[in-house]
Structure formats: structure tokens, C-alpha cells
């Protein structure tokens, strides 16, 4: 974000503000709103349901506004700002209630938290609304770890898991730290590293269809390193990446299938899993 305080001229030369200070977290609330995201909605609804169960298990009432749709990221990253703005405006109207918003996807949470305000620089009122919502938006693992301060009781058998973090989720929401923090609480789970772990899986939203060969080469390398990692299971907090990686692993008949961390955590906390 630009330092508007220094020189308000639109021609002012910009610097990139360093994001030094960590986020301050509120006390655990009584209610939250779940923003499900479009990919979860259609392809991984169980992840959304398990997120709801995890939150309810923490004594939190979860609202799911039926009028929500997509955060707008696909249009925004494709250069269709006007369309992204319109979709984002619709979500903002729903989410600006003062109730914390929890998102089971790092990149969609990042979109709301870091990019919504900038989308509305030219509309001061919407921008204020976007800033309020941004301040109140949390990625699921971040929320469980730092707001709920969960202490997970692991009831499952020993498993070795590989963790894949979406690039934007890692960079904008530090999801890798939060997901690792949660996994570390599970006594029966060992997290294994995989080669080039922080490298992009090749999804990249519309990138995977605009540059199919490059994306295909990237996901092939990713599945290879995952299958060589010795993990029994792949988990991720981002369903876009999972759609991509699972699709490739399925195509290659690999014995590994990824699922959302919410589903994994919920399962581990059940008796006899």
C-alpha cells in the first residue's frame, strides 16, 4: 500500500510499506460469519462444513449469509477490475456487520483483507466499509490459532502429512505459520517437508488455463515432490491449489489425495478416527 500520508498527489513516487508489525488479535467472539468462497462452495463443501463444526466446537455461533458468492479475485487477477469491483461491493454489503468474518481460504481472505480497500480508492464510503471489513477478516487457521487459541486434542492414529500452502495465502496471510502451528498441536501427526515446498503448484487462478503447458509442468513437479515426500496425506488451507494438485494426482493415478485442513483437523478431533 502506498504512503498516502506523505504526498497525496496522484503523481507521488511510491514506496512499498514494510509490513513489520504483526496483527493484533481480538478476544474470541460469540459469533462469526463464514465466507465460504466459490471453490469450497462447489467442490469442497465438506471443508466449509468442517470449518463450521470446528468453530461451533469452540462455542462460537456461525452465520452463513445465503447471499454470499465469490470474493471477486478471479476477475481482479485477470484484469477485469470493473467486474471485480462490482462483485466485491456485493460481498462488502453483506459482510459489513461488525461480526468477524472467517474464510477457509488464505487467498480469498487476503483478497478481502489486503485488496478490497485499494479497489475502492475512488469511492471513499465503500473504501471505509472495505477497511472495516478488512480489519475484521480472518483466515480460518489464523482464527483458530490466534483468536480462538485452540488446544486440539488429537484422537487419531499416527499419520505423516505434507502441507501445501497457497502462495498468496503464505505471503498475505502467513497461512503456513498458522497451519503449522495447528498441526504441531496434534500429537499423532508428523509434518514432512517436500522438495521445493514453497514453490507455486501452478494453479494461479486463470493462469492454469491461459498458460496450460507451463502450469502443467509446475503441477507435475509439485505432485512428484509430494509423492516422494513419504507423506500419507496432503493437506492444504486453499482449495484452489487442491483442485489443481488433486486433479493432477488423480490423472497420474497417484495414491495421494489432498484435503482441506479443516476436514483433517475435525476428523482428528473425533473419537476413534
Amino acid at each position: 500500500m502506498t504512503d498516502l500520508f506523505y504526498d497525496a498527489s496522484p503523481n507521488a513516487t511510491r514506496i512499498v510499506q514494510s509490513n513489520k508489525a504483526g496483527r493484533e488479535y481480538p478476544e474470541k467472539p460469540d459469533r462469526v460469519v463464514l465466507f465460504g468462497t466459490c471453490v469450497v462452495d462447489l467442490f469442497f463443501p465438506e471443508a466449509g462444513m468442517d470449518a463450521i463444526r470446528l468453530l461451533e466446537h469452540q462455542g462460537i455461533q456461525v452465520d452463513f449469509p445465503q447471499n454470499q458468492s465469490c470474493c471477486g479475485q478471479p476477475a481482479w487477477t485477470s484484469g477485469y477490475r470493473e467486474q471485480a469491483e462490482s462483485v466485491a461491493r456485493a460481498q462488502l454489503a453483506l459482510l459489513d456487520t461488525g461480526t468477524p468474518v472467517v474464510v477457509p481460504s488464505g487467498s480469498c481472505a487476503g483478497m478481502i483483507r489486503h485488496h478490497y480497500p485499494g479497489l475502492f480508492n475512488h469511492e471513499p464510503q465503500t473504501r471505509d466499509r472495505a477497511l472495516r471489513v478488512a480489519e475484521n477478516t480472518f483466515e480460518l487457521t489464523e482464527f483458530l490459532l490466534n483468536v480462538c487459541r485452540v488446544r486440539l486434542q488429537d484422537r487419531g492414529r499416527h499419520r505423516q502429512v505434507a502441507l501445501h500452502t497457497s502462495c498468496t495465502a503464505r505471503r498475505e496471510m502467513q497461512t503456513h505459520h498458522h497451519a503449522r502451528g495447528l498441526l504441531a498441536q496434534l500429537s499423532g501427526v508428523t509434518r514432512v517437508d517436500h522438495d521445493h515446498e514453497s514453490e507455486c503448484c501452478g494453479f494461479g487462478g486463470t493462469f492454469c488455463v491461459r498458460m496450460p503447458d507451463i502450469s502443467g509442468a509446475m503441477v507435475a513437479d509439485k505432485t512428484q515432490s509430494l509423492s516422494q515426500s513419504g507423506a500419507d496425506e496432503l493437506i492444504s488451507a486453499d482449495c484452489g491449489c487442491l483442485l489443481n494438485i488433486n486433479g493432477a494426482m488423480n490423472r497420474q493415478n497417484l495414491n495421494l489425495k489432498g484435503r482441506h485442513i479443516a476436514s483433517f483437523l475435525w476428523e482428528r478431533c473425533q473419537e476413534g478416527s
Binding site: 462447489l42 463443501p45 462444513m49 496450460p212 486433479g247
Partner: peptide
Amino acid sequence: YRSAPTPAARSLHEQA
């Protein structure tokens, strides 16, 4: 490079 993804039987909207 991938299998086609299959939509879920019921959306999160419905399940929720």
C-alpha cells in the same frame, strides 16, 4: 494435465 474436477453433490450453501 489433470482429471476434471467433479462438483460436490450438495453445495456449501445448501449444506450450511
